[in-house]
Nucleic acid binder design. Structure first.
Lengths: 157, 157
DNA sequence: GCTGATAATGATAATATTTCGCATTTCTAT
DNA sequence: ATAGAAATGCGAAATATTATCATTATCAGC
């Protein structure tokens, strides 16, 4: 018998695995943290604002406060479980850190986000930081545009 | 006799030139807009938040409301006189659009901003947008790090 | 499995940033 | 100079995020 928990709504599983995931990161495995982690892993759109996360948890009948979502996301960010992005909307969106580093392509119409990796850009960024004598700690690259679906839509009118 | 206006405090000059600059952009040449434009051209640190601009105008004895600063910056952005950036702090900073496009290197300690241009990155971004079928409208690249001065400082303690 | 120390949570108040509503003022074309 | 339209300043409202604090949950040690 393992850690996997069966739930009739199918929303939240693998509680035990996430439990260890949190402990390994040095965080107590509390219910809100488990639920948030699971929600993020099970959501298609992987880029969510604190408000998004809060609302989805309410929909799932989970009793989590918005302040807790913010606190938890900040902690998750500190231990590198998630990244925080500031898209042009001005608010913060969070993304689970799984797989390797990547950058983002954001549709200005519908908000759709594509991810991409471009090694040459990564290398060039390091080179630039070095040229200015900066010790590079982080970077963010967003390309904004209109996605294929939204181009379709506007040409159809 | 030309448009240049002499002022004893030396802060705000060239009123007439800016006047035409605004008209050309399709904006009425109002006092707040002229003052903001001049302030931005005469400030060393070219990246300012709305609050920064507001406070500096007050210091100069100009009577401009904070709401007006926000409105004007939004209009300036719309006609491409300024760019709006969302650095990781979360708040918006504005920058005068003069000279050619460039990206930013931001010090996480002192907030110092360096600008750079890297053609290869520009080209690659267009290539990526194209690959995903996006019509690219904009992009932002920020490299975060510790500037030389701040590295010095922390090693000296 | 209990239990107590400690840390985390939820509700709400507080703060910060940005926008809105509206009476008044300023621009600009005449 | 003047009228009509647009812009402004002020304060209130909206939005996003953080802080406060009484209550509750977690977990190490038994």
């Amino acid at each position: 018998m393992n850690d996997v928990v069966k739930r009739s709504n199918g929303a939240l599983n693998n509680v035990g695995l996430k439990n260890t995931e949190l402990k390994k990161a040095g965080l107590k495995a509390t219910l809100p943290r488990l639920k948030i982690l699971e929600l993020m892993e099970n959501s298609e759109g992987r880029h969510m604002s604190a408000e998004d996360i809060y609302k989805k948890l309410l929909e799932l009948g989970e009793d989590v406060g918005l302040a807790t979502v913010y606190r938890v996301m900040t902690q998750f960010e500190a231990v590198n479980l998630v990244s925080r992005h500031h898209f042009d909307s001005g608010l913060s969106v969070f993304e689970l850190n799984e797989g390797s580093h990547h950058d983002h392509l954001v549709c200005e119409k519908c908000g759709k986000v594509e991810e991409f990796v471009e090694e040459s850009i990564e290398r060039t960024q390091h080179k630039i930081a070095k040229k200015f004598g900066f010790k590079m700690t982080d970077h963010s690259l967003y390309i904004y545009g209109i996605c294929p679906a939204c181009q379709e839509e506007s040409s159809r009118t």
